[in-house]
Write a protein that binds this DNA or RNA. Structure first.
Length: 183
RNA sequence: AGACGGGAGCGAGCGGUCGCUGCGGCCGGUUAAACGGUCGUGGAGGAAAGUCCGGACUCCGCAGGGCAGGAUACCCUCGUGUUAAACGGGGGAGUUUUCCGGCAAACGGGAAGCAUGGAAAGUGCCACAGAAACAAACCGUCCCGCACUGCGGGAUAAGGGUGAAAAGGCGGUGUAAGAGACCACCGGACGUAUCCGCAAGGAGCGUUGCAAGGCAAACCCUAUCCGGAGCAAGAUCCAAUAGGGAACUGGAGGCGGCCCGUCUCGUUUCGACGCCUAACCGGCGCCGGAGCAGUUCCGGGUUGAUCGCACAAGAUAAAUGACCGACACUUAAAAGUGAAACAGAAUCCGGCUUAUGGCUCCCGUCUUCCG
RNA sequence: GCGCCCAUCGUCUAUCGGUUAGGACAUCAGGUUUUCAUCCUGAAAAGCGGGGUUCGACUCCCCGUGGGCGUG
């Protein structure tokens, strides 16, 4: 779990400090980072060998599954109504989290943006940001209860890092993520 | 050259990483699918918006006709379009407003606008003001009488005043004063075997002194057209439960008819009852009708699913995204901002309207400079 | 998505094409009261926006804006 978390943090840093990173900060997390870049390069070069990525011994387990296919989404009105009826919710700055637990739990996501958020463009944007933020943290969650995220209006003007940290804080309060994150 | 306004067009580039989704190929998987992997390929707009008009399409209704209700309304031509409905461009006619010329009116010219059939088919309305709003004498002018500067009767629509609108306008003749009463010019109305124009219409000619206004985006009349609802239309599949129909089976019960017995009182009618049994049962007859349980089938179609639904977008709590780089701008730097505005498909198509940063082009107005 | 309705003072509402757009509650000022409430008097306060028809538009017509309702 902790490995995944550090990997996310590194991934963020990786974007920001790309130029000066390669030589200096090698010592601690060298192995994973190296293998990732190596894997990426290899994938772009040779698509045929990318199928063997799962068998790569260095980072096979730690390669984050960031996918969020449609089967991992809440898709029926009944599921949403059950989530609201169970009345377990956590309120964040940019979103409200509802938890739904039932026999068909699969850590599925439902995204809601009401008309109070704005017009159709704003609602679509809010839903995309929530979906994207959840997609990035989904592989860290060991729970399997379903989740409904309701967008608040402030998410439109928020910067992306704040949205991510707000989602993490909300998930910690709900018990989906371990309490203290270290990086 | 700049600013402002209007119109038309374009409406956003490159590379990388992580993701979503449709289709196709291959591989895995499966009875077949679902599903997974990989490769290729596609993935928001000029308005997708508003829902203001239409059409395709679907279901319901439909013997024929009428009423009610609704829509449209000058002419020619071209274009888009499913050659449908509508819409747009150009030209013309008419008309309204405004500007210029004109003493003024008429008229001529320019610009802008017009949902532009009909006002002698009928009804209605035209507030206030004004004497009078479709019928008229308040002031004024003139005449006559009384009378002595006022009253009464009459003539008069030139002038004043009111109003959005008051007998077509200017000039003249004429008159008691006036008046199309009469005349010239202009205008109007009506008619047209003429001329021009495809036509709307215009010109000319003739008649008429011009008894009559406006509103039909008031009712209405004329002509043409319109059945209703809408993809949440509609079609298909269908678990469980309840209810509906049909068939079969089951056990018992019930109903009616006749007969028997008992009861009340001698008989008859009527009525009630049918002891005794673990339970049912007086006897005979009839299942005509109704109902119960079980099984099977049919019908209905709630939850849900699929189709409708897309010949290069095609979802169904609804994909088209997030991050980074290079680059550009601001800043001393750190750092920040960024492909920008309006805004995101939901059956499809055409039109209209509205919103819109930036760039390009065109038109108009104003300012500055030069000639 | 589709279909439909509405818009008038701060709020709720009237209004036959002719007004200074009426009423109630609320607000403000004055009066009454020892004071407050009640009561009395007075004031301020509105036609969703843009066009068109008309002599004249809240009213009639068109286009937009903003609300609301129904429908599986």
């Amino acid at each position: 779990m902790r490995q995944h978390g550090s990997l996310i943090g590194l991934q963020r840093k990786y974007g920001y400090y790309e130029t000066g990173l390669s030589t200096i900060k090698q010592e601690t997390a060298t192995q994973t980072r190296f293998s990732r870049t190596d894997g990426n390069r290899r994938r772009t070069q040779d698509p045929g060998e990318a199928t063997s990525k799962a068998a790569d011994p260095a980072n096979g387990l730690k390669s984050p599954d960031q996918r969020l296919p449609r089967s991992a989404r809440l898709r029926s009105n009944r599921d949403f109504q059950e989530a609201y009826a169970q009345r377990r919710r956590v309120i964040g700055c940019y979103m409200v989290l509802f938890i739904r637990s039932g026999p068909d739990n699969a850590l599925r996501l439902g995204v809601v943006a009401s008309r109070r958020v704005g017009n159709a463009v704003a609602r679509a944007r809010a839903k995309r940001r929530l979906r994207e933020a959840f997609r990035r943290v989904r592989h860290d969650i060991r729970d399997n209860r379903d989740v409904v995220l309701v967008a608040r209006r402030s998410i439109l003007r928020a910067c992306w890092k704040n949205v991510e940290s707000d989602l993490q804080r909300v998930l910690q309060k709900a018990g989906f993520l371990p309490g203290k994150r270290r990086d």
